[in-house]
Design a protein around this nucleic acid. Sequence first.
DNA 1: AACATTTAATGTCGTATAGACACTATAAGT
DNA 2: ACTTATAGTGTCTATACGACATTAAATGTT
Lengths: 235, 235
Amino acid sequence: MFIMMQDYDINQFKNPLFTVDSVLFTVIDSVLNVLMVKRLIEPFAGRWGLPGGFVDVDKDDNTDMTARRKLTEKTGLSPRYLEQLQVFSGINRDPRGFSVTSAYYALVAHQAVETRIETVEQASWISVNELPNLAVAFDHKHIIDIAHKRLQQKALYSMVPIYCCPDHFTVGQLKDVIETIIEKEIQRKSLMRRIESSDMFEFVDQKVQSGGRSAQLYRVKKDVSMANFERNLSV
Amino acid sequence: MFIMMQDYDINQFKNPLFTVDSVLFTVIDSVLNVLMVKRLIEPFAGRWGLPGGFVDVDKDDNTDMTARRKLTEKTGLSPRYLEQLQVFSGINRDPRGFSVTSAYYALVAHQAVETRIETVEQASWISVNELPNLAVAFDHKHIIDIAHKRLQQKALYSMVPIYCCPDHFTVGQLKDVIETIIEKEIQRKSLMRRIESSDMFEFVDQKVQSGGRSAQLYRVKKDVSMANFERNLSV
DNA sequence: AACATTTAATGTCGTATAGACACTATAAGT
DNA sequence: ACTTATAGTGTCTATACGACATTAAATGTT
């Protein structure tokens, strides 16, 4: 019996606690928000945590699917953009022992999902500005911070922020999303040049009013890949 | 007893096989090489694999230390540069079941370590050009490919390739290392400008002969951080 | 209807940095 | 002294972003 326990422990030793967690971002009214879930179980029951959990080898072909499944389970939505962030690991980040989380970050347009979010009671958008004063589980505050910095960097040389825009969007909307993410104003002209040169977008035959001259609507072309630029926008 | 087995299985289900593997690069005679280890145990015994293995929670504070420890164990060296690549996971990449590897990539100057490498019989530098014809374990060929692409990208906007140079190096050496990594020639002038503006380097009061005019030796200043540039070199 | 106000979109010029390549500098060999 | 090879600089061009003026098109006001 004691030897069985030892075998068991050896197996545990080779396999740290492994989870997948996602930082799902969206921009609402020029504020960057993160989807968080009120934890119902220990450890850290009652605190806010990132949507995530264990891999289910019967359902998940890989950890990307774990991330997507957990986001869908807990929020009813599948993000338009999902990418690995990095692994966070250590002996102190989970009271149960050495743990590893493969963290992802993801983007959605809040317009497409906000009604569905509200029906899932334990999930909620949290402004990143409120995070410092919030009781958060594990090292999830740190993970969000790293994810935010990565997203900021990515926004300087790619068009990824479009995934925070609805299907049809104006240049003004995209500009606002980018400025919210990088926390700095950009030149509309620079954005127009990138929209043009990326060749990712096409006009929607429709305009939308905005308090002044109507704005042209754009959408992402079918089957285009994400544009990356050779230069960063200035910081 | 049966219930105990079920509990055990549930625990297994929650914890996929987790390993840490590293792609250690170096440049030798204008060829990019990867450190590989001849596997002595199943699965894939006899094939070449990346240096790596299981986390040891008694020795490792986190997976970074696992990566370093495994590199040191199997090669006798600690890399000057080590960074997370990404997680590779899936049901098919290991015959034992769903597995996850947290992959790292690392750089060393081969000059500092080549004698030590040769004393460790199972470890060897493999040219990336020979990889397609080599019997490689798991999805390690794919991991090396992704690591190479990431390194190429990084070489376009940062000075990381210096970690493939010895402590004292010339502009010509650094230029060769960069060109080997990105597989394209660059302008010496552009590199000089970056060396200057990065403010990372200082002269060594010494020159080195090279078949023509002697070359100035440089070294990295004490306690400087890695320079990143706002533009990529052209591809 | 003329005008002010607001936001959208474009035009134009300045600036920073990479690419190209000629030119100079310094070493070794003949 | 001349050739060759490699190191290093000078200078011009090209590109894309920043800044900001200008034009366009919508609404509201007198």
